[in-house]
């Protein structure tokens, strides 16, 4: 039987209350939302928070998925199942549906949250790469107020983010720009396992030219879950399979996978190249309206 170490439990009644509780309880307190990463780590005592601040009651404030001006806004407390079921998210960024279909399993998706996944900062977590591809921005709030951080600058290492102990992630924003398409490709051994590797791509086309592109990589040791060298090389190039294969190669060269039971380094690098290429191809087909 796996029993977490003792902790005190507090339930937040508002965002302000959650931030105040985190301040009072100190740096060893943790926010619990879905808990589907934190609680397993607590059972193994890999995580040992003194206190949990439960934000599950803040759905009205934090779980909305909506369009606000030119941004898609996803509340940090939106469940994975909410994002998978969101027509507005899928319409603008099909990459969210691609990824959510293969995140954990359907029951876990009912409770695990978007913000929780990002704040857990697991190197094999899918949404960090998705938001890296889309260049999403997180809104964080602490006692001193609100600040915006690009998801590409959110993670400072495995299980580490730039969030202060008394900061709460409120929402994620992605700019909706014309001419765009996006896709996510993942290889996993079985449902619910960590990915062997995965890649996300977002492209914006001017005719047959790549106007802008974002590439995210999962579980292959890419810094900030991104592939900036491949993106820079692809901007302004023709949107062809040849260009996308070259970008995939660059993404693979610049990532840093580790060998483990899911595969050796060479295989993961091969996947990084192939999955990046496939994601780019599908993203471009979607940008052209050739694929749903």
């Amino acid at each position: 039987m796996q029993v977490p170490a003792p902790f005190t439990y507090e339930r937040a009644t508002s965002v302000e209350h959650a931030i105040a509780l985190l301040g009072e309880l100190g740096p060893e307190a943790r926010v619990v939302a879905g808990g589907h990463s934190l609680i397993p780590m607590m059972k193994l005592r890999l995580a040992r928070p003194d206190a949990l601040v439960d934000i599950n009651g803040l759905g009205a404030e934090l779980a909305q998925i909506r369009v606000d001006g030119d941004d898609l806004v996803i509340g940090s407390l939106a469940r994975h199942a909410d994002l998978l079921g969101s027509a507005v998210a899928g319409e603008h960024f099909p990459i969210f549906h691609d990824a959510e279909k293969v995140i954990a399993d359907p029951v876990v998706r009912n409770f695990g949250t978007v913000g929780g996944s990002l704040c857990q900062a697991d190197p094999a977590e899918d949404l960090a790469a998705v938001f890296a591809a889309l260049d999403g921005v997180a809104t964080l709030r602490g006692p001193a107020g609100v600040r915006q951080v690009r998801v590409r600058e959110l993670h400072v290492g495995p299980y580490e983010t730039v969030l202060a102990p008394d900061e709460l992630m409120l929402e994620l924003r992605v700019a909706i720009r014309p001419g765009g398409g996006s896709a996510y490709e993942k290889v996993e051994r079985r449902v619910g396992d960590y990915p062997v590797a995965a890649a996300g791509a977002a492209v914006w086309l001017d005719g047959d030219t790549v106007r802008d592109v974002g590439i995210g990589l999962t579980a292959v040791g890419a810094e900030h879950f991104a592939a900036p060298e491949a993106e820079a090389a692809l901007r302004g190039q023709p949107a062809t399979e040849e260009s996308f294969r070259a970008a995939g190669q660059l993404a693979a060269e610049h990532c840093n996978p580790s060998a483990d039971q899911r595969g050796p380094v060479d295989y993961k690098r091969h996947l990084a190249a192939e999955l990046t290429t496939r994601a780019l191809l599908r993203a471009a087909a979607r940008a052209r309206g050739q694929e749903a």
């Binding site: 796996q2 439990y9 339930r11 619990v32 808990g35 589907h36 609680i39 397993p40 059972k43 949990l52 439960d54 599950n56 199942a81 399993d105 359907p106 029951v107 876990v108 009912n110 409770f111 619910g192």
Partner: peptide, 25 residues
């Protein structure tokens, strides 16, 4: 470890793995 799913119950109408939720929640 939230893998096997034999502990699934509904929480407010949705199936969840009850080994990965604290009773307090």
């Amino acid at each position: 470890t939230s893998n096997c799913g034999t502990c699934v119950v509904w929480l407010d109408g949705k199936p969840v793995k009850s080994c990965t939720v604290f009773a307090a929640m």
